[in-house]
Amino acid sequence: MASYIAASIMCADQLHIADELEKLETANIDLLHCDVMDGNYVNNLAIGPEWLMAVKKATNIPLDIHLATIDPIKYVDMFAHVKPEYISFHVEVCEDVSEVIQRIRSYNIKPAIALNPETSLDTILPYLNEIEMVLMMTVNPGFAGQIFQKNVLVKLRRLRELLKDYAHAPLIEVDGNINETTIGQMSDCLPDVFVLGTSALFHKKDSQTYFERSTRIWSHAKR
């Protein structure tokens, strides 16, 4: 099973983003995880479409946009011109999940569903054949540096078991204090995509390069 590393761009040095992107490319990062926050669904604001378009032009790393917003269709339309690889939206805010999935696909973007730690896995089961990825939050969205919520492991194990019989199973992505320790807790149900932020990749006190850090995490995930 392949494992992929996504770098959480909100954790990078925003004053030196071009340098950060160059380092991430050198580290062979697979995806740039881009949190879009509207100040309503979560109590934070982050990443506008024009800034993200500038990032897109500055790197060859595919973008993985996570909409932590209400009214996801509004934001799908707003960010579609950036042409990310994935757009994920929260099942908690949707009246018509399939409509949002179809809107994302209409732009030739891969749809993904995100769910919070306390949200039942049952809410997304009807849509697993319609999406390309499940983003399982291991912290509540909005801020970096939170404590990994171990209750998510039960959902992760169940989802991995459910997907084993799918001919075209969506990827499983995890986001929220993902590091060597928390990955070790997922050893029996490893996800496909690990979002790395301040606790692993962008750790300013760690003198290792992004390449060394991501390789260390990737190797740990493959055990």
Rank of each mutant, 00 (worst) to 15 (best):
P111G: 02
I113H: 01
A114H: 10
S120H: 07
E130R: 12
S88D: 03
L125H: 02
V55T: 12
V82P: 13
R158T: 15
Y107E: 09
V91F: 10
N60V: 12
I47D: 05
I101C: 10
L52H: 07
L67W: 12
Y127K: 14
D96K: 10
V152Q: 13
V55K: 10
R105T: 12
K74E: 05
S120A: 13
N151S: 06
V93Q: 11
L128K: 07
L121G: 15
Y107I: 02
P126H: 12
N44P: 05
Y127G: 08
D77K: 04
K150A: 12
I131H: 07
C94V: 01
I87Y: 12
L45R: 03
D96R: 08
E95K: 11
E95H: 07
L125Y: 11
V100N: 02
A144T: 03
L128D: 02
F148H: 10
V139N: 05
L115P: 04
I70T: 05
A144Q: 05
L159S: 13
H81S: 09
L121S: 15
L128S: 06
M136T: 02
C94H: 04
D77V: 01
N60Q: 15
P62F: 07
R157V: 12
E92C: 14
D77L: 08
V97G: 13
M78R: 08
N116V: 09
M133P: 03
P84T: 05
T138F: 11
I70P: 06
N60H: 09
E50L: 13
H66N: 00
E92F: 07
K56Y: 15
M53V: 01
V154R: 01
D77N: 02
P126K: 06
N44Y: 00
I124V: 12
L52Y: 07
P117C: 15
A58P: 07
P141Y: 11
M133W: 04
V76D: 00
Y86L: 04
D71S: 09
I104E: 00
S88M: 01
T69G: 03
V97T: 14
